[in-house]
Design a protein around this nucleic acid. Structure first.
Lengths: 151, 151
DNA sequence: TTATAATTAGTAATCGTTCCGATTAATTAA
DNA sequence: TTAATTAATCGGAACGATTACTAATTATAA
């Protein structure tokens, strides 16, 4: 039972890199990951907090942040910076790019075949050991476009 | 003289979009832009503040931020977010990408021919009206690489 | 030179995020 | 099953980058 539970999310089979601390499961962390995995909203920490406060009335925002960083460290989630003041998170682990609507701020995933050749090019030009690259597209989504044309 | 001065930086021939205020020149703003134009460091607001404090002993950090946002609004500078807690700025206006060393945090410019075709692709897939895209390459620069190999 | 209003310095406020100490709860070993 | 251990939580204080505010200063137009 216990082993089975562990494997449900295979979340606890690693130690925290930085602190060498053995992870323990917690309801909160599991719900955070579940939320991330079942939404396509690329949520902020605050949005997650709002969602889970009903389930955990005593929930603390610090718990959200701490767990998000554990999940990112463990490779179960990713942090997305797209130039705003707050970070967004996602549990989609396959490589993909992002489209950001400058009007309504929504982010949508853009699954283009990843251009690995430009990594090589960048390496040749710069001497950098490239690990990965990010592409963000900025523009106006079709909904906002329609709305703007009406005005 | 006055007109000539104005044209030196062609900074003051516009009104601020948002506030409809007629811009006035200021020593501080001009030095900020000059610094941005003569460095390849992609400075933070704080770095600029440090540099100019000697020239303007009473300089205030708020002045740096306010002017940077004016300069960005006027199109004389750009804000770069690359996933850190603080913003960086640059006055290089020609399109280019960025390489970020994950070790020493330096940013270098990467002048690749811009892939405009992927904008069209993104538009077709998403329905977004794409204005532009950003590519950031993350890795380790050659200097840091050398140092790491020594260890 | 004077009137105006934009810019500044200085400081307080804001906001996302991180840190801390006391309490709670998940896991291990008896 | 129970007790001991220690990671995770909560709540709130602290932090760091940025923004907002106000009185004093200064660039510009008349």
């Amino acid at each position: 039972m216990y082993i089975a539970n562990r494997n449900d999310y295979d979340l606890y089979d690693m130690k925290k890199e930085s602190t060498k601390i053995t992870l323990r499961r917690s309801q909160q962390r599991e719900r955070i990951l579940e939320l991330l995995r079942t939404t396509d909203r690329h949520p902020t920490a605050d949005w997650i907090y709002g969602k889970l406060k009903k389930e955990f009335p005593k929930l603390s925002l610090g718990t959200i942040y701490r767990n998000l960083s554990v999940l990112v460290e463990q490779g179960h989630a990713k942090k997305i910076h797209f130039g705003s003041t707050f970070d967004r998170f996602e549990a989609k682990l396959v490589p993909h790019y992002h489209l950001i609507c400058e009007n309504c701020k929504q982010i949508i995933d853009f699954e283009l075949p990843i251009y690995n050749d430009i990594n090589d090019k960048a390496k040749r030009v710069s001497g950098f050991e490239i690990r990965y690259h990010k592409i963000d597209f900025f523009g106006v989504c079709s909904n906002c476009n329609k709305r703007k044309k009406k005005e």
